[in-house]
Design a binder for these strands. Structure first.
Lengths: 215, 215, 215, 215
DNA sequence: CATGAATGAGGGTTCATTCAT
DNA sequence: TATGAATGAACCCTCATTCAT
């Protein structure tokens, strides 16, 4: 009754075979992400979702109670992809500077892979009901906070906490930016370049380069 | 038929009196921005727009042909507010470092004032038809480019062009971030603080602070 | 905000001209009663209602918010027809036996005119939301009670109150019966006959005929 | 193909074992009556029927071809309960007045037991196809007719045939009334009282009490 | 110019029924 | 025999748009 791990655990299905539920819901999410990318949530039809998922409208509603459930499912998946995978990467004990850089790099690579998902996150978040929206945002805050801590822990010289927080925030939106400004950025930078330069900026802010530029 | 200065010039109205057209369209835009902020473009009805504008649905359609026209009108206004005002601020001949910092500061203050508009820009851009969308994006690219040039021109030590471009981009999205992460950032930073720290980071990236911290 | 006289006063319409609202709602009610008679509320389509009312589905929903509102409108009309007209007939000061008989006769004539409406009342009452249902039933109870009082007041010899109540109830359902058993009763009785015999039974129950059969 | 004794004999099942068919259909009817009482036929789904019957939707359709078949099955059962049991009680040779009263009493007790079923009969009859509906109604007419004959046969003084017919009809609907006006009547009368008074009325109509009140 | 009643295509959702296992 | 996933016609309702006044 309480403590569901995922948003989607709260979405009831009339189908009993839970493997099938998972399989079909994966189809739904995959199809929906494609469609939401193109037209956004509101302009996408449930019929389109069903068709793109490979089954009929009736079947869609066996796995989902409302159209909003589909959005929830999508957000749940994105959350797991973005944040859970991010967690894997961030949640480390090794608090050396090198490790911090690795985390940042891993994060940028992740956002590169999940560009579409991040876009949807930005554009459809307001279509979620208030409480679900807050859950998603809360996750973000937690992640940012972890990066902030990592920055503090691994900064070569003592760093102001607020500065660390701001750097963490900057890193996050710069990751997102790679995705939703791709039409401009990705014409001018390769991912490698982008990562390298952004990391370099972080190092300069942390004033690492003044002391040891031999990186 | 071509060469209009503004998107809205292409929107036909059946009313002859062009002063009235402008007046009414201002009402429409003002009302729409309020509504779009709350519920987004798709979930806002034309009836709501008409009512919030202070006239009937019939009258609305005297000044606009379709609902999409309203969005165009809104984007046009936002564009003028954001980019044209930005242009005023950026478009300067004085290419000293100090002036660059003033530009950045002015930009952050501007995005603070226009938070809602920026949000709409992010969230409803995909509701625009392809060609209109590109016009908006093109404007952005131009602005970023100007900032890039300013950075190059005023950097104390020679700077790589791509680095400058990236810094410019970072500044832009960090401005946006102040708006759409306000629920988190504005709890922890005042606008003054935010600006000061972000500018400080830019300085560090430009390696100004290593030499002269007496700012 | 409180104290509406009729159920329908609580049904909101988006049309401003209240004369038009009344006119259109009359069309809706008239059409709906025809349809509900044939197929019942649940099997009648809103499109059918609109069409039978003489306008489009969109127009229907300008005068009504939900399908259930249509049912409410119908019940409201039936209530006014059955109970309010009944009230006119019953609510009298003259408490002679002759007057009682007139009331009964008037009631039977009324149910004859409103056969279809009474049928709908019986068959669709359970489609109403609980609270509305109770309002309708309450009206009935009041009416029955008035007839009971009239019986007590005009009975030639003292009559047990419960007997009076039961007689009143019997009269009511016998009125209804004339409508929903018409396929059988109306083949074998004219309305005049039916009324005369039923009244005669009442007289016998009141034991009037033992004393003076010269009616 | 013709001459079935019961409506349900015309309902085909794909199951061969006729004992099983009967058992399952009993489950279906029992479950359906409960559901129809609460929500009526149209608002009850086949899934609900299957579940309440204790098996799957697939199984339901092994014993029934359509949802309407379920209604037929229910009516068939109600018919057997109401009319067949009524027949037992009515179909007697002893044509004394006392026996008539016993019949009436037995009938009222029966309708008390079968309140819900009678309600369904009233409310869902129009959901039946025309021909089936007539069968049910025909049964009623027969029953009423039998009571009419009994009245004629046992009336102490000669009675007009139409009067007898009307009395019979009155008795029938007063039985039904006990069920569908229970929210009002059963608050004010016990079943015993109700029966006693109604029978007393019949006696008065038959003018028995004028001569011999020593009942 | 302004109004607002009328329109109907199209969206979300339900549910009786089928059929492969 | 029993199951339950799949189907899609059909339902209720919304809302952008038109046009007579």
């Amino acid at each position: 009754m309480e403590g569901e791990r995922f948003m989607s655990d709260a979405i009831k299905s009339s189908i009993k075979d839970s493997n099938l539920v998972e399989k079909r819901r994966n189809q739904i999410v995959k199809a929906s992400i494609q469609l939401f990318k193109q037209k956004g949530f509101t302009k996408t039809t449930t019929r389109e979702i069903a068709e793109a998922s490979g089954f009929s409208i009736g079947t869609l509603y066996e796995y989902v109670r409302t159209k909003e459930d589909v959005l929830l499912l999508v957000f749940d998946t994105i959350n797991r992809n973005v944040y859970d995978r991010l967690e894997e990467v961030i949640d480390i004990k090794n608090r050396s500077l090198e490790n911090l850089l690795k985390v940042i790099e891993a994060y940028y690579r992740l956002t590169d892979q999940l560009q579409e998902e991040v876009l949807i996150l930005y554009q459809e978040l307001k279509s979620l009901p208030q409480d679900q929206r807050e859950k998603v945002l809360q996750k973000e805050v937690e992640m940012v906070d972890k990066v902030k801590e990592a920055i503090i822990a691994s900064a070569p010289s003592p760093i102001d906490e607020k500065d660390a927080l701001l750097i963490a925030n900057n890193i996050f939106v710069q990751g997102h930016m790679w995705g939703f400004r791709r039409w401009s950025l990705q014409k001018q930078f390769t991912l490698e370049e982008y990562i390298e330069r952004q990391i370099d900026f972080v190092l300069r802010i942390l004033q690492v380069d003044c002391q040891e530029l031999n990186r």
